[in-house]
Amino acid sequence: MARISAESDKHGDLVKLGMSIRVRRKALGLSQEALADAAEVDRAHMGKIERGERNVTFLNILRIAVAIRCKPSELLQDAGL
């Protein structure tokens, strides 16, 4: 089974997930720094997640979802995943 990394994300799924996070964050009027603080994720790492440059962990998806008041499944659904 092939490993999925930011470099091997040929379908752009990480970018789609990052965009889903960014859209919800902006809809709440949160800065990237405020979201990172609320989700307990480093701000620079949050930027990479939103740009699809990092293969975000499941636990970080959970933390981000709580911080932007949605279910993790909603983030994935919004991303078309």
Rank of each mutant, 00 (worst) to 15 (best):
M1T: 09
A2F: 03
A2M: 07
R3F: 00
R3C: 00
I4F: 06
I4M: 12
S5D: 09
S5N: 09
S5K: 13
E7H: 11
E7D: 14
E7I: 06
S8E: 13
S8T: 15
D9V: 00
D9C: 06
K10L: 15
K10P: 01
H11I: 00
G12M: 08
D13M: 15
D13C: 05
D13W: 14
D13A: 12
D13Y: 08
V15H: 09
V15G: 04
V15L: 14
K16R: 15
K16L: 13
L17F: 11
G18C: 02
G18M: 00
G18D: 01
M19G: 02
S20H: 09
S20Y: 13
S20P: 00
I21D: 02
R24C: 07
R25P: 01
K26S: 11
A27I: 14
L28D: 08
L28E: 08
G29E: 10
G29W: 11
L30P: 01
Q32N: 02
Q32T: 07
Q32G: 12
E33W: 04
A34M: 10
A34G: 00
A34S: 13
A34D: 13
L35Q: 02
L35G: 02
L35P: 01
L35E: 06
L35H: 01
D37S: 06
D37N: 12
A38Y: 14
A38S: 14
E40Y: 03
V41K: 08
V41A: 07
D42E: 14
R43Y: 00
R43C: 01
R43L: 00
A44C: 01
A44H: 12
H45T: 12
H45F: 13
M46D: 04
M46W: 07
M46N: 05
G47A: 10
K48R: 14
K48L: 12
K48F: 09
I49F: 08
I49G: 04
E50Y: 12
E50Q: 11
R51K: 13
R51C: 10
G52M: 06
G52N: 08
G52F: 04
E53H: 09
E53V: 06
R54S: 11
R54T: 14
R54H: 12
N55A: 15
V56M: 05
T57I: 03
F58S: 00
F58Y: 06
F58M: 00
L59I: 10
L59M: 11
L59C: 00
N60G: 01
I61M: 10
I61N: 02
L62I: 05
I64F: 08
A65E: 12
A65R: 05
V66F: 10
A67D: 13
I68Y: 10
I68H: 02
R69K: 14
R69G: 07
C70V: 15
C70E: 12
C70M: 11
K71P: 02
P72Y: 13
P72V: 06
S73E: 14
S73W: 04
E74L: 03
E74D: 14
L75N: 02
L76Q: 02
L76C: 03
Q77P: 00
D78Y: 04
D78H: 03
D78R: 02
A79D: 06
A79N: 03
L81A: 06
L81Q: 03
L81D: 02
